[in-house]
């Protein structure tokens, strides 16, 4: 399959990339890892007149902690997240997520910025970033703005990014004491999108009660879904199997999956419940192990 014709512009700097997006308006698409965009172009589901390649823009590929946050550059490849000692030790939920995205060959190119900016509810990072209450940094002609993750996902394949904005960084709050998170995905086979997946981040107080909870769900709603009722049901409670089953039930109720080749809606809802329960258990054991 051959994509439709387009003009190719390789940006050498973020300023140049933004200027190109401004110049071409809605006709241009940003190319980062290309592992979703290029397949869409081959199917002619996307036919941008101009491709702005940002892969050689410097300064977008760092993973670093500063001022109480983890900052992940928009061009960080999934393989870098999988292998980063910082991510594996301090943010294992992000490593969980990166290592179940597509397959290793795709992960050598795919970027976290693309995974979020694509706005696909089947993508894996959105649920995790909802659970972690991340912020997205967007650069545009007017400078930089920070978008809370809850405002970022607008609709299926639609985010709060303007046509002349580029996602440059994802900011995650550094983990407080006694906190832990996990991402648990059910997929039919390696490389497939989730039937359903759940991201959970828990913070415990000194008595071991739940002081903070974030739950995000993948591929069971028209956009990445925060299971807010399930989060609220956990707050102030002592963790238990019963509590987690009740919260998982609330998460499944919030889901509104569609019947497709991955199964009927009710099955997917049941999978969402089980994934949420397992992610709650995994997050709890990490939170309890963290001092």
């Amino acid at each position: 399959m051959i994509p439709g014709p387009f003009s190719y512009r390789r940006a050498a700097s973020i300023e140049e990339a933004i200027a190109l997006l401004q110049q071409y308006g809605g006709e241009a698409k940003v190319l980062s890892g290309g592992q979703s965009l290029i397949p869409m172009m081959k199917f002619r589901l996307a036919e941008p007149a101009v491709i702005v390649d940002i892969n050689r823009v410097p300064g977008l590929d760092a993973i670093e902690e500063r001022n109480g946050i983890l900052a992940i550059g928009g061009l960080v490849r999934e393989v870098a997240l999988e292998r980063s000692p910082l991510i594996r030790q301090r943010y294992p939920i992000i490593a969980d997520t990166a290592e179940v995205i597509a397959d290793p060959l795709v992960r050598n190119l795919a970027t976290i910025g693309g995974n979020l900016a694509h706005g696909d509810p089947a993508n894996d990072h959105p649920a995790t970033m909802l659970a972690l209450r991340a912020e997205v940094v967007a650069r545009g002609p007017g400078g930089e703005r920070t978008i809370p993750i809850d405002d970022f996902f607008v609709d299926t394949f639609t985010t709060a990014l303007g046509p002349d904005e580029i996602l440059t960084e994802i900011r995650v709050p550094a983990p407080p004491p006694r906190s832990g998170g996990a991402y648990v995905k059910f997929e039919r086979k390696v490389g497939d999108y989730a039937v359903a997946a759940a991201a959970v981040f828990l913070v415990l107080d000194e008595a071991g009660k739940i002081a903070g909870a974030g739950i995000g769900l993948t591929n069971v709603y028209y956009k990445p879904l925060r299971a807010a009722e399930a989060e609220n049901a956990l707050l102030g409670q002592v963790p238990s199997g019963e509590l987690f089953r009740a919260a998982a039930e609330l998460a499944a109720k919030a889901a509104d999956p569609t019947t497709d080749l991955r199964g009927p809606a009710e099955y997917k809802r049941a999978v969402a419940r089980t994934m949420t329960f397992r992610a709650l258990e995994a997050a709890l054991s990490r939170a309890q192990a963290a001092s």
């Binding site: 390789r10 390649d53 393989v79 060959l105 795709v106 050598n108």
Partner: peptide, 21 residues
């Protein structure tokens, strides 16, 4: 993955990379 080649040492799917890249 039938189209896998090494690009600067990394295995990638060459059906999902533009030659210009």
């Amino acid at each position: 993955g039938a189209c896998t080649v090494l690009w600067d040492g990394r295995p990638v799917k060459s059906c999902t990379v533009f030659a210009v890249q």
